[in-house]
Design a protein around this nucleic acid. Structure first.
Lengths: 161, 161
DNA sequence: GCTTGACCTTACCATTATGGGAAGCACCAT
DNA sequence: ATGGTGCTTCCCATAATGGTAAGGTCAAGC
């Protein structure tokens, strides 16, 4: 079983198999005299495990931990479950974020005529002076230190509400 | 308005502002004699536009197109709407993927006792021989070309369904 | 034996968007 | 003059993957 066949058998590309080896996710397999990597059924199984974990959205580092749990025959299933549920929460956080984006855009698009006139609430929203999104507070005093500034600054910046 | 202030005013870090300039997303601002970048209110506005687009999940390249539409006073709102809805579909595709992952993991976790015993359906699933996920078809014949292969290959590979 | 094509090897580069740091100059207040 | 903060550029790193190039290998056909 050399790498190309390991790839089709596991669903992990040859490129990625070598990569996983390079980062120590999998052990270096034995080699033929010519230097070809040779994989055992066991190793293919491991690759498939990794593939499945990736498909479920686990990062490579998370896959590494899952592999460790898998190999540890004395693990407690509670540990696996905790780990999995943590990931579920991560996924759902991400889902919520994406849904918020989608919802906002959908609303905006709904109010957009979508004809050949230029007026567009979508662009209008994007161009809002400040949609009070991020609570990005910085520790800075008056912030008025620039010297030979040539810019025209009206009250533009006090407008950030 | 030099870069630090432009950053706080727009919500885009100074690092990113320079980056956006380097990739031509924004025009290079004028400079003081000393080489300091100086931003106009207009440019801050533009940065805020970009920031908002990014917050809504548009990629930088998409933000570039939105900026172009914004600047083009003769755009048709239909174009903007189409663009936005395309993005909404992208978002929802992503959401669906994440939800599929979440659902699967949740189901698995549900059947996991989560005690101190090692038996765990989550790991068992990950270790499944082949969960017939990807339709990864490759154009290859018998695929049995290796020479001095030392691996034990039972029927392991014919097992992939 | 020699050629050919498919396969393997390593090494390097690119991607996306962002952060971090170093070295050095600029500005401003004391 | 000195110090602190901010600016400059340049380089590196991240996560996971794909691509390419240059070269060795293997099996098969002539």
């Amino acid at each position: 079983m050399n790498i190309g066949q390991a790839a089709t058998a596991s669903g992990v590309t040859a490129k990625m198999i070598r990569y996983y080896e390079s980062i120590g996710l999998i052990e270096p397999p034995i080699r033929t005299q010519a230097g070809y990597r040779v994989y055992t059924a066991e190793e293919i199984h491991e690759l498939r495990f990794i593939k499945r974990a990736r498909t479920l959205g686990f990062s490579i580092e998370e896959a590494r931990e899952l592999l460790a749990l898998w190999r540890d025959k004395s693990r407690a299933s509670a540990d696996v479950k905790t780990f999995a549920m943590k990931h579920v929460r991560d996924l759902e956080t991400k889902i919520d974020e994406l849904q918020a984006m989608s919802r906002t855009l959908r609303h905006l698009a709904q109010t957009c005529h979508g004809d050949d006139r230029p007026e567009c609430p979508i662009l209008a929203d994007l161009a809002l002076p400040d949609a009070r999104q991020p609570p990005a507070e910085k520790k800075r005093g008056k912030a008025k230190t620039h010297a030979d500034c040539t810019c025209d600054e009206g009250d533009t910046f006090s407008r950030r509400h």
